[in-house]
């Protein structure tokens, strides 16, 4: 499988990358780790005339902590997030999610920024990024802006990124001590993508659910926050009955995907079951 021909650029700064994007507009695609884009190009589902490889751009890699916020460079690989001591200590659900992606080789090369920008409906990161209420820093020719993860995913493979913009950082507020998280996923056996992936971030006060955020991927065209589940459980005791009743609302009001791997009814049931288990996991 050979991709269509394209012109290749390897800028070393964000400014240089943005200038190339402005020049080539919709003909150009940004290449990060390449583990979403290159497979699509090999199948000729994507045929960009220009590829702008940003892996050599300075300053987009690695994780640091600043004023109670983890700042994750867009080019940070899944493996780096899975194995980072800082991430495991401060926001373990990020490391847990990273470890569920693809396989070792894929995690070595794929990046968080690339995955989010590609916005595959069955990718893992969107669920967790939504549940953590992350901020996304975007840089474009008109300057930079920060948007909420909840405003980022728009349609199938479509995000709030404009043609001349690049996602550069993911900002995650380090949760309070009494906050726990859990990401639970059913792997599609062949591809490893999520048939359903549920991320839960839960703040407890004794046995009471003080606050809960639930992000779900793999179930709909667009990853979503299960707000019906959240409002059903917030302020209530974390009993098995309350959790199960809340989880029943995991697919409420959602347009559910259907494909050869899972019917609408099956996916809807998966969303409920995995939501219940992920909440139980975070609560225990």
């Amino acid at each position: 499988m050979i991709a269509s021909s394209f012109e290749y650029f390897a800028p070393t700064s964000v400014d240089e990358a943005l200038a190339l994007l402005s020049e080539h507009g919709d003909d150009a695609k940004i290449l990060a780790g390449g583990h979403s884009l290159i497979p699509a190009m090999k199948l000729r589902l994507a045929e960009p005339a220009v590829l702008i490889d940003i892996q050599r751009v300075e300053g987009l890699k690695g994780v640091s902590e600043s004023d109670g916020t983890l700042v994750i460079g867009a080019l940070t690989t899944h493996h780096e997030l899975e194995s980072s001591n800082l991430v495991n200590q401060k926001v373990p659900i990020l490391a847990q999610t990273a470890g569920e992606i693809g396989d070792v080789q894929v995690r070595n090369k794929g990046t968080i920024g690339g995955s989010l920008s590609h916005a595959d409906p069955a990718a893992d990161w969107p669920a967790t990024i939504l549940a953590l209420d992350a901020d996304l820093k975007i840089v474009g020719s008109g300057g930079e802006r920060v948007i909420k993860a909840t405003d980022f995913f728009e349609e199938l493979y479509t995000t709030a990124l404009e043609a001349d913009e690049i996602l550069t950082e993911v900002h995650v507020a380090v949760p309070a001590e009494n906050t726990t998280g859990s990401y639970l996923k059913l792997h599609q056996v062949a591809s490893g993508f999520a048939l359903t992936g549920v991320a839960v971030v839960l703040t407890k006060s004794g046995d009471i659910c003080e606050n809960i955020a639930v992000g779900i991927t793999g179930v709909s065209d667009v990853p979503y926050r299960a707000s019906e589940v959240e409002s059903a459980l917030a302020g209530r005791a974390l009993t098995a009955d309350n959790i199960a009743a809340a989880a029943e609302k995991a697919a409420d009001g959602v347009d559910i995907l259907e494909d050869i791997h899972a019917s609408e009814a099956y996916r809807s049931n998966l969303a409920k079951v995995y939501t219940r288990r992920a909440i139980e996991g975070a609560a225990s």
Binding site: Y8, A10, L31, G34, H35, I38, P39, D53, Q55, H79, V104, Q105, V106, N108, K109
Partner: peptide, 20 residues
């Protein structure tokens, strides 16, 4: 699979130019 700069990668999913 080959090792590129210390990381095992699937070389069918990497362009040769990325390995410059």
């Amino acid at each position: 699979t080959a090792i590129v700069d210390g990381q095992a990668v699937k070389t069918c999913t990497m362009l040769a130019v990325q390995a410059d």
